[in-house]
Every structure is written in C-alpha cells, then in structure tokens.
Amino acid sequence: MAATIPIRKNKKGTFLDLSKEEIRDQNFLSEFEIFTKEISTFMSGTSVSIILPEDIKLEDQEDNEILKKIRLKLNMSNISLKNILNCEEEIQKQEPSSPIPESFVETASSAQAKESAKEVIDTNYLPETLYVESNLRSGQLIRYPGNVFVLGDVNPSAEIIAAGDIVIWGTLRGVAHAGSDGDQTAKIIAMELKTGQVRIADKIATIKTESSKDKKKGDSRAPELVKIQNNEIILTRYFG
C-alpha cells in the first residue's frame, strides 16, 4: 500500500523510499497520489528525494514516464522533487548512528529506528523551522532536522521528532521528542500539556496528566515549557 511508503529524514534531506514499491503496477500512481495528499499536510512547500527500486532504469522510456508522473503528483501537493536515487547510492551514504540510544527509539517505532541509523548531515536547503498549520491526528508522524512549529493540536499517538525545538500552539497529547540528535538545550513549548511522556535529547520523562475532572475551565496560565536543567527534564511555565 502506498500509504505506508517510508519517509526518511536525514541531514541530506527528506527521502521517500519507493525501493520496495511496485511502481510499474497500474494502481501505484493513484495510491501514490493519495499518499502525497496525506503527507502534504506537513510537507507542503518542501522538497524530497526519491529512492527507486533497483530495476527501474531512467534510460527506459516507460520508466521515465512513470517518473514524470511521480514528479507531477508531488508537485500537485506542492512538494518538489529534488533528487532521484537508486538503492545502492542510498546505502553508500550510511553514517554513524544518531546519539539517541537504539533501544529508546526502538520503542517509539522500530522501523524508524533502523532508518535513523543511516542518517547523514546537511540541512542547508531546508528551512530551519517547519511550520505545520493543522492538527496532527493519531498515527501521523513528523520527523524534521530542525525546529517544528504546530498551529493546532497534537493528538494522542501522533508524533513529532525534531532535531531542534518543538512549539505547539495548541494542546500536546501525543509524543514530542525535541533535540532528537542529542541537543540538550532543545525545549518543548505547548499551550497545554496533556501528554503522558516527553523526550528531550536522550532523556525521557513521564508526566502525570490531570484528569478532566480536576481540570479548571478557562484556566489561562502561561504556556508549558519542558527543558533539561541539571541533567534532568523539568516542566515549568514559559514567560517569554
């Protein structure tokens, strides 16, 4: 299913891994179109590279047509195609593993953990902050090599993994991991914090969430701030 195309983010940029897809299959393009629409909620305006199955030859007329269509579908969702790679090139780019302990990422998503080990560094062409203007619903994942700003809520079991800071103009109920490359100064700011767990760099903290019973209506305190202080994750208020 095209809806499950792996998105890899490393410092060379964002990659759509089509190497396992049957891209010559007649259904592929329509599924790919649905996929691009889905990712456009958070990838609109960015550029991606695609990784092709080994047997696709750019010289081949028919394969080339498919590629043109892939590019078109991406462009329709306001995503530009930066580069086209085949499997071998991708594998050669392996890099030292990220500073996050494998076991930790493993619990978050074992598939992604293996990907993150392959990451390479060069964020020059990506904007420093990814601006997401929508709610993130369950199952949606944002991985970004910079900061992430969300204008909306992050719902339970949605995930944001950012190398920089995470700012949420809404309620955080899902998973947020700031400083995912090991930056201990990264922070998470949310208007409201209702998640059970936050992660900064290689640290994890569990948070006791207030049940809806204790929640005071119209409670307009300052936004919540999560950061590392004295080697420990602390939860405090953000006063600018």
Binding site: R137, S138, G139, S157
Partner: peptide, 20 residues
C-alpha cells in the same frame, strides 16, 4: 473510550487526506 477515540482519530486523518 480512549481506545476507540484514538482509532477514530487515525481514521479521520486518513479521511481528511482525501478531502477532495
């Protein structure tokens, strides 16, 4: 129930991707 709401949220995300 929380489990039902979370699964529905996932579904809504998929439906919204096809809002056209």
């Amino acid at each position: 129930e929380m489990s039902s709401v979370r699964d529905a949220d996932r579904i809504v995300g998929l439906l919204e991707a096809r809002r056209d």
